[in-house]
Simulated scan of single mutants.
Amino acid sequence: MNKYQVDDNGYYGKFGGAYIPEMLYPNVEELRTNYLQIINSENFQIEFAHLLKTYVGRPTPLYYATRISEKYKTKVYLKREDLCHTGAHKVNNTIGQILLAKRLGKSKVIAETGAGQHGVATATVCALMGIECIVYMGEIDMARQKPNVERMKILGAQVVPATSGSQTLKDATNEAMRHWINNPSDTHYIIGSVVGPHPYPDMVARFQSVISDEMQKQLQEVEGRNTPDHVIACVGGGSNAAGAFYHFLENQSVNLIAAEAAGAGLASGKSAATTILGNPGVLHGSKTILMQTDDGQVIEPYSISAGLDYPGIGPIHAHLFDAGRAEFYAITDEEAMIAGVELSKLEGIIPAIESAHALAVFNNRRFNEEEVVVVNLSGRGDKDLETYIKWGKY
Rank of each mutant, 00 (worst) to 15 (best):
G10E: 05
Y11E: 03
P21N: 15
L24T: 13
R32A: 12
N43K: 13
F44D: 00
Y55C: 02
Y55T: 12
G57D: 02
T60I: 06
L62I: 04
L62D: 05
I68T: 15
E70P: 02
T74N: 11
L78R: 09
K79V: 12
R80P: 12
N92S: 13
N92D: 13
T94G: 08
Q97Y: 05
I98C: 14
L104V: 04
L104K: 06
K106N: 05
A121W: 06
A121Y: 00
V125G: 04
A127L: 09
L128V: 11
M129C: 13
Y136R: 11
Y136M: 11
A143K: 15
N148T: 00
V149T: 10
G156Y: 02
V160N: 04
A176R: 09
R178L: 13
I190M: 15
G196T: 08
G196P: 05
H198G: 06
Y200P: 00
F207R: 08
V210T: 10
G224W: 03
T227E: 14
D229G: 01
V231P: 03
V235G: 02
G238K: 05
A241N: 10
G243N: 00
Y246H: 15
N251I: 13
S253C: 06
N255W: 00
I257V: 15
A262R: 04
S268V: 01
A272V: 07
G278Q: 07
G281L: 03
V282Q: 05
G285V: 03
P301R: 04
Y310A: 09
G314H: 13
L320I: 03
D322N: 13
A330Q: 09
A330L: 10
A330H: 06
E335M: 00
I338T: 14
L343V: 12
L346T: 09
H357T: 03
H357I: 01
A360N: 03
N364C: 11
F367S: 03
R380E: 03
G381E: 00
E386H: 15
K390T: 13
W391E: 14
G392C: 02
G392R: 04
